[in-house]
Amino acid sequence: EDAYNLKIRTTGSDIEIALYGEWGIGATPMAWQELYTGMEQGAVDGVYAGPVPAFTNNFTEVAKHATVLTLSFGPSVRLMSGQAVEQLGGVDGELFQAVMKASRESEQIKREMNEKEVAEVADKMREQGVSVYEPTAEESEKWLESSRGIVPQFIGDGKTISQDLYDKVQAIGQ
């Protein structure tokens, strides 16, 4: 309810605009490089961004409130050519499996480092006088539940994201 009718900067993507609509937030497309001035002048009330870029771009100078939401995750993608897979002994090969294991482990390490960095940035924001709010598990679930409302618009045959791809990503998340 606190975010209702706020104007939040969006990239302009259809999915992001629909998501903001589900949340009752006014999606306001704006280029990243215009955001600081847009917040300073009141063209937008805020931004949905990672804490680290928000901090390193000095948004704490023009916004004195932050909410830490864990609604999205930026995965790393590692691509390998068919020739490289063959050189590693194929998908069942010992070397290929070792590379895949190392990739999964490095992703977990990256995730842990990111969580630590987000906590450190939240502390730095507080030091600069920003009120940092971290929702309870129940509040976070409300955000997630509301977010699920846009799934039928974008997921399925002939839509932005195929049902098969969506199901695979959901399985990975579990």
Rank of each mutant, 00 (worst) to 15 (best):
K116E: 15
L71R: 03
K124R: 15
G50C: 00
F73P: 00
L69E: 01
Q128I: 13
I25D: 06
A49M: 03
T28V: 14
Q163K: 13
E22D: 02
F73D: 10
Q97S: 02
T37M: 02
A66G: 03
S140T: 14
E1L: 10
K110C: 01
T136P: 00
E61S: 09
Q163Y: 08
G129Q: 03
R104K: 13
E1W: 08
R148D: 09
G93C: 09
L69M: 06
A18S: 14
E127L: 13
Q87Y: 02
M39T: 03
A3I: 01
T37D: 15
F55K: 05
A3Y: 11
E112Q: 11
E117Y: 04
M30N: 08
I172L: 15
G82Q: 12
S76V: 11
V132P: 09
V151I: 13
I155V: 14
I150L: 14
I172N: 11
Q83T: 14
V91R: 15
G74S: 09
N57V: 00
W23L: 11
G50L: 05
R111E: 10
E112A: 10
R111C: 00
G173S: 06
L144D: 07
E127H: 09
K124P: 00
E139P: 00
Q97R: 12
E1A: 14
I15A: 06
D14G: 03
E117W: 08
A18D: 10
Q153H: 07
R126Q: 12
P135C: 07
I161G: 02
A43T: 15
E16N: 02
D92Q: 14
K116H: 10
G173L: 12
F154V: 00
R104V: 12
R104H: 11
V169W: 08
A3S: 00
G173N: 13
T160A: 15
G89N: 07
A27S: 09
Q87S: 04
N58E: 15
A63K: 08
G89F: 13
K168H: 12
A98W: 12
G38F: 12
G74C: 02
K7H: 06
N57L: 11
W32H: 07
A43N: 14
G93T: 07
G12A: 06
S106K: 08
L165N: 05
K7C: 02
Q163R: 14
V47H: 10
F73A: 04
A171H: 13
